[in-house]
Design a protein around this nucleic acid. Structure first.
Length: 603
DNA sequence: GAACAACGCACC
DNA sequence: AAACGGTGCGTTGTTC
């Protein structure tokens, strides 16, 4: 396992011309390249060897330096990466490594076929517990190597950073780990990446063949699309979304004042220091002589719907509201934004079992909308378009229901929708109930809910709920049969494939979940197709996608490129052409922020 | 002191 | 027989 030296570097790099497949890994000083973390080594694995390129000439925590002749100048980086040109490069969580290269202005991976083993691992089996390199490596016989993590913990090679939360953030310093340990660890990860990539691709091709033999759609187009999506997501994240720092800070201070004031009131009322936990709240209710609810397990429960509508209950409610906004949103945004006030989130390409993305650091897919709950500082107002740009938000109309109706072939309802009715109203008309009941029933169906939950949601008794459910399936007979067919298939075969060839495994102890997975995943695939198309469309322009929120795209559109709007909408609406009812999308825009939006057509 | 479960709440 | 789906992240509280 060779560490590359000044003497061998040139020879090693030139030998890459003999290979077409590589594993790649980086070691970095921290996790966020936009707030100062740097790469300090590069590992390239070929079929025959693992090479460790070290760029770190600084001492480890013991004061020791890497051997002098192993310290390469960082300017070699483009030269090394360029040598991979045209090759296939397996990287676990590829966007992470690519961002570190991008901030060093190394673009050479663009001319490679980068394959993210995290994204593709999810396609091999969508229901694994973990898709970490350790977990996936185990599938091909590599035991977990936690030597570096252990070393960091043992020698406390981390800094605790106070970010205003109750628990400080721990920044680990991988560059302080002794050279022998980090280099061997790195080269092993490069090897695992390489072998894992080969394994995953082989397995996916087998699975695809298997699906074809069963008369199902092939898997490989899904695989190919995920590969195409990696650079699309990378662009989105690297561009990032700008925040209004002054506004966000003001909002944070305001909400902090709010919840601190509530803490004072709580103390005055109960004589207790406020904590949002069972102990304190139970004591507070006891002191006030008030009743509270219980969880299913019989523990005291203080969740919103069980909190009484009295002074104490409302104090807790208001505290939580302010505290949530202050910490999860405003404070987190301030902390995570870079020096240009830009937030670079992480769209996790293998983040869900159904095929959606998830989003983290921060999660920009759960930013409050503030419908009924008024807020002096709407959270979405934190996000602003850059100079000469405006926000364009395009979201699909009732996407999941439409896909379900299409899948089932419920012609009567489909015709009503084609005639201009909204999905829930059409359902309501068809089965002769009010719109609210129809909408609730549609929801229940999509989530596999039972009669009891339906009764709760409708505010009726169990019997009535059962009757409504029966009526629903008596009317929407085709929906009923497709739901049953999916459950039967997954029970018999252990998996189903959706309309795009994506494979969904049988949920453990819960085949009833499969219709939901099927529809949710189908929508995920449609949006992914749309994103690839929109990315292609925007490539020659300044306008760019910033966020995906499941059925919605947030695009930063340049003011000179308004002619692109209809093309974007068309690309989205046409992402699933075989659908038997229109897949429409609504368009809003904003010149100011993500909250204050207006319909685009009325402009 | 760290790791884990449970809870609670923001989104689609 | 019934089962409300998919996330991320902050907290408290328990356990080792």
């Amino acid at each position: 396992m060779p560490v590359v030296t000044k003497e061998t570097a040139d020879l090693v790099v030139r030998s890459f011309a003999d290979y077409h497949i590589f594993g790649l890994d980086l070691e970095t000083t921290g996790l966020n390249p936009y707030t100062g973390a740097k790469l300090f080594s590069l590992i390239i694995s070929t079929a025959d060897e693992d090479y460790y390129f070290n760029f770190d000439g600084t001492p480890d925590h013991l004061g020791n330096l890497a051997p002098y002749n192993t310290v390469l100048p960082l300017r070699l980086l483009p030269y090394i990466i360029t040598a991979l040109k045209g090759g296939t490069v397996f990287i676990h969580n590829a966007k992470f490594d690519q961002k570190f290269l991008l901030v060093e202005e190394v673009l050479a991976l663009n001319s490679c076929r980068v394959i993210c083993t995290y994204a593709l691992g999810r396609l091999v089996n969508n229901l694994l517990i973990s898709y970490s390199l350790d977990a996936l490596g185990k599938l091909i016989g590599y035991e977990k190597d936690d030597s570096v993590e252990k070393y960091i913990t043992k020698h406390k090679l981390y800094t605790k950073v106070d970010v205003g939360k109750k628990s400080p953030r721990k920044d680990k310093h991988y560059n302080l780990v002794p050279f022998d340990i980090i280099s061997n660890y790195g080269m092993r990860d490069g090897r695992v990446c390489y072998e894992l990539g080969i394994y995953i691709l082989t397995r996916l091709e087998e699975m695809s063949e298997e699906q074809i033999k069963l008369g199902l759609l092939p898997l490989m187009p899904v695989v190919e699309r995920e590969i195409e999506l990696t650079p699309v997501l990378l662009d989105m994240e690297h561009t990032g979304i700008k925040i209004n720092r002054a506004y966000t800070r003001e909002a944070y201070e305001y909400q902090k004042d709010q919840y601190q004031e509530i803490e004072q009131k709580f103390y005055a009322l109960t004589g207790l220091d406020f904590e949002d936990g069972r102990k304190t709240l139970t004591a507070a209710f006891k002191k006030m002589g008030l009743e509270h609810g219980y969880t299913e397990k019989g523990n005291p429960s203080f969740k919103d719907e069980l909190l009484p509508d009295n002074t104490l209950g409302n104090l807790i409610r208001d505290w939580r509201h302010s505290y949530k906004l202050a910490t999860t949103y405003y404070k987190n945004f301030l902390d995570i934004a870079d020096d240009n006030d830009v937030i670079h989130c992480n769209f996790k390409q293998g983040g869900t079992s159904t095929g959606r993305f998830s989003c983290s650091e921060p999660n920009l897919q759960n930013v409050p909308k503030h419908g009924e709950d008024s807020n002096k500082y709407p959270v979405r107002s934190c996000f602003i378009p850059r100079e000469d740009y405006f926000f364009l938000m395009v979201d699909y109309d009732q996407m999941e229901y439409r896909l379900l109706l299409d899948l089932a072939g419920e012609e009567e309802i489909i015709n009503k929708i084609k005639g201009g009715l909204d999905v829930h109203t059409a359902t309501a008309e068809e089965m002769d109930v009010d719109r609210f009941a129809a909408k609730t029933l549609n929801f229940m169906l999509l989530y596999g809910g039972g009669a009891q939950k339906l009764a709760n949601a409708l505010g009726t008794n169990l019997q009535d709920a059962k009757a409504k459910k029966n009526k629903y399936f008596r009317t929407l007979t085709k929906v009923k049969s497709i739901v049953n067919a999916l459950i039967n298939t997954v029970d018999r075969r252990g998996f189903v494939t959706n309309r795009f060839g994506r494979r969904l495994q049988k949920p453990v102890e819960g085949s009833y979940k499969i219709p939901n997975h099927f529809i949710q995943g189908g929508c995920g695939d449609i949006v992914k197709i749309a994103m690839v198309e929109v990315a292609k469309l925007l490539r020659p322009y300044k306008s760019r996608m910033l966020l995906q929120i499941h059925d919605e795209l947030l695009i930063e559109l340049h003011k000179d490129e308004k002619h692109l709007v209809p093309k974007i909408v068309k690309a989205m609406q046409g992402a699933y052409k075989e659908i038997s009812l229109p897949l429409t999308a609504g368009t809003d825009y904003s010149n100011t922020n993500w909250y204050d939006k207006e319909p685009y057509n009325e402009k």
